[in-house]
């Protein structure tokens, strides 16, 4: 029998615990449960969900159980980078540097694109004038 999606609640005290994303869902349709998990063992507890596919309002839906996350971090659980990013965006943690990095890179890319399009338009106008 498979363990339940909400986790088994069974764990060894001395084992290392991680709050990380665990891929559920199916092919081309990822859906994540945020779980405390030690490797090679069943999930201990489900702490939230994350759907990376944007919905019709262009939103990526996330749910987090702050109380339990607080408890488990207090009891020495590690947090993986993607979850750190999520928690940063949610306002639980400070915003992760990689989030800043992606943001400024995206900004730069859009700016460059805009400049490129403007220059292209200007060239077109010049061509028309000549």
């Amino acid at each position: 029998m498979l363990p339940p999606a909400s986790g088994t609640g069974i764990f060894v005290n001395s084992s290392e615990k991680v709050i990380r994303l665990l891929r559920q869902g199916c092919t081309n349709r990822p859906f994540f449960h945020i779980r405390r998990k030690n490797q090679h063992r069943p999930v201990i507890e489900q702490l939230g969900t994350f759907d990376p596919m944007p919905n019709e309002h262009n939103e990526k839906l996330t749910s987090l159980n702050y109380e339990r996350i607080r408890y488990w971090i207090g009891n020495g659980a590690h947090v993986s980078q993607p979850v750190e990013q999520l928690l940063g965006l949610a306002g639980f943690f400070p915003i992760h540097p990689t989030s800043y990095m992606t943001a400024w890179r995206n900004r730069r890319a859009t700016k460059e694109n805009q400049e490129k399009s403007i220059s292209v338009e200007a060239d077109d106008k010049n061509e028309v004038k000549q």
Partner: peptide, 22 residues
């Protein structure tokens, strides 16, 4: 950014440990 982030997270973590650690 990473240095700041690590410092903040460390302090947050130590607070949570003091509050919740069994």
């Amino acid at each position: 950014l990473y240095n700041n982030y690590r410092t903040k997270v460390k302090s947050l973590r130590s607070y949570l440990v003091a509050k919740h650690c069994t």
